[in-house]
Design a binder for these strands. Structure first.
Length: 244
DNA sequence: ACGGGTACAATGAGCGCGGT
DNA sequence: ACCGCGCTCATTGTACCCGT
């Protein structure tokens, strides 16, 4: 019996048993989405043994039905725990880190050295490069850990940051959200900072049994102002949880 | 000497398309 | 339905240049 005849027999047997050879791609699409969160197509191709072109077509929804064997191969792959070093990611968090370090007086040369990369990369990030690879983001994080709590000596870097209005590491530490690309630091004003401070004060006063009226009086603002600050604080927290 | 800028080749991810 | 070659393009590091 030839190989093709044998496969045909198997398919006929499966059909009689009620096991279709062609199945819905839904489960495969879901699993591919999960794999794509941390793995490149090259990695997925190597792990599944399937062609990357075909898997992309499945993910795109090109096929109404796929081979059962293809689904088995895809489902057998476990997602990588860490993103591939060569994967392309949003550069916003690294751009913010580089700019903040420059605002603290760290030269591009110093940042590059601390992270184990080169000044070219740091400069392009400072200019606002939109996308980057995971490996460089890791290096920028290393530089951030080393330098964000210290003050640099480069007046040139500090002047450049001041001219462009880049916030320093302290600002980001106070405000958080450095890793949230959807957050717009330019939208933060004295007023929003004051509002966020009020929301934080309420978080502290509420467990102590303060009513909103009582808390507003103690904080020296109207009840409406406090209510607005609390609503803003809750909306921000909800956004951050959605992003995470 | 220091620090930022430019050019370029290497690398790797993504994708189209013809063939099976 | 599936495979995989070959191409494009973005990102990377290296080498070198220029201004202060």
């Amino acid at each position: 019996m030839s190989r093709d005849e044998h496969r045909r027999k198997i398919r006929e047997l499966n059909r009689h048993r009620g096991i279709p050879n062609r199945i819905s791609p839904d489960a495969t699409v879901q699993h591919l989405k999960l794999l794509r969160a941390t793995m490149s197509w090259t990695q997925i191709t190597a792990a599944t043994g399937c062609s990357s072109g075909h898997l992309r077509q499945i993910l795109r929804g090109d096929w109404p039905a796929i081979n059962r064997l293809t689904q088995e191969k895809v489902l057998a792959v476990r997602p990588a725990t860490e993103r591939a070093p060569g994967a392309y990611i949003d550069a916003t968090p690294s751009v913010r880190r580089v700019r903040a370090l420059m605002a603290a007086g760290h030269a591009q040369y110093t940042i590059a050295e601390a992270g184990g990369t080169v000044t070219t990369r740091v400069r392009l990030l400072a200019e606002g490069q939109p996308r980057m690879r995971q490996m460089l983001a890791t290096k920028i994080e290393t530089a951030w850990v080393q330098l964000s709590a210290t003050t640099g000596t480069s007046a040139r870097a500090r002047n450049m940051a001041a001219a462009r209005g880049w916030p320093d590491p302290t600002w980001w530490e106070d405000y958080g959200r450095i890793d949230d690309p959807s957050f717009d630091p330019a939208a933060v004003t004295e007023r929003t900072l004051r509002s966020d401070a009020l929301a934080e004060d309420w978080e502290w006063l509420e467990p102590q049994g303060y009513s909103r009226q009582h808390a507003a009086e103690r904080l020296g603002v109207s009840r409406d102002t406090l209510n607005a600050a609390i609503a803003r604080g809750r909306a921000l927290r909800s956004d951050m949880e959605t992003a995470a």
